[in-house]
């Protein structure tokens, strides 16, 4: 079995008025795509923000490649290889597409050649590279934030509901893209409430309810669409 890239144990966090995340635990192994399935408001985004270091944790630990990173801030985690694709996209709206990509490479070794790789993967972004990112369509912005994370050659990619607010055919593209990325060896943690994307992209997974991880989903479970849909209706 591959080594553990990310391990979360008993993670607790919130926004001042009570804990949203209440002792969540999970593991991600190198080269794997791990999904976390949960309905609206169970704390998926809070989990991702806490893993990234944007929301402080009050208990529990986050371990990256064997090192405890719980006390590090987001800047330091990013430099260590956490690639973050937030829910709601968060492009830098007044910056050009190209500058959005450049900032993704800047603190991760300034490997500007990777911009060219991204343009090859996403020709739409090349066409629009001088355009302000805020003027792109929802699907294009989603590509941009994924490319912005990839351009820094992340050790683990954190994807927060990439299906939200994009058209169904683009959801399919996102699934195919995650698979493709995974073939090149990228490790992914994906949170979603879209069963189709979850099945298309994730190999194994977890179920999240009310701030806790309540079940692990095996490869066989992931093929059982009925079961996954049932999880969401709980």
């Amino acid at each position: 079995m591959n080594e553990t890239v990310l391990s979360i144990a008993g993670l607790t966090a919130g926004y001042g008025s009570g804990d949203i995340l209440q002792g969540a635990s999970l593991e991600v192994r190198r080269g794997d795509v791990v999904g976390v399935l949960g309905r609206n408001g169970v704390g998926k985004t809070t989990l991702m923000r806490t893993v990234m270091g944007l929301t402080p944790s009050s208990a529990g630990s986050i371990t990256h490649n064997g090192a405890d990173v719980t006390g590090l801030d987001a800047e330091e985690r990013a430099v260590r290889g956490f690639g973050y694709v937030p829910q709601g996209r968060m492009v830098f709206p007044h910056m050009s597409v190209e500058d959005n990509l450049r900032i993704g490479a800047l603190e991760r070794g300034r490997n500007w050649r990777r911009l060219e790789d991204m343009y090859q993967r996403f020709p739409r972004l090349r066409e629009r590279r001088r355009q302000r990112a805020g003027t792109l369509s929802g699907g294009e912005q989603e590509m941009l934030v994924i490319a912005r994370a990839l351009v820094g050659d992340p050790d683990i990619l954190l994807l927060d509901e990439p299906s939200e607010g994009v058209q169904p055919n683009i959801v399919k593209d996102i699934g195919a893209l995650i698979n493709e990325l995974n073939q090149t060896g990228i490790t992914v943690l994906l949170v979603e409430q879209n069963v189709e994307l979850m099945q298309a992209a994730a190999r194994v997974g977890y179920v999240m309810e009310k701030g806790r991880i309540t079940q692990a989903l095996s490869e066989a479970d992931m093929h059982d669409g009925e079961r996954l849909r049932h999880v969401l209706s709980l």
Binding site: M52, G53, A74, M90, H94, D99, I103, R108
Partner: peptide, 24 residues
């Protein structure tokens, strides 16, 4: 310049800039 890129990113989306490694 790199400083300008960091500064514009920080001004527009501070948290996202942090999550990309910028010491805001």
């Amino acid at each position: 310049t790199a400083f300008g890129l960091r500064a514009r990113a920080t001004m527009q989306e501070r948290e996202m800039a942090q999550a990309l490694g910028v010491k805001t």
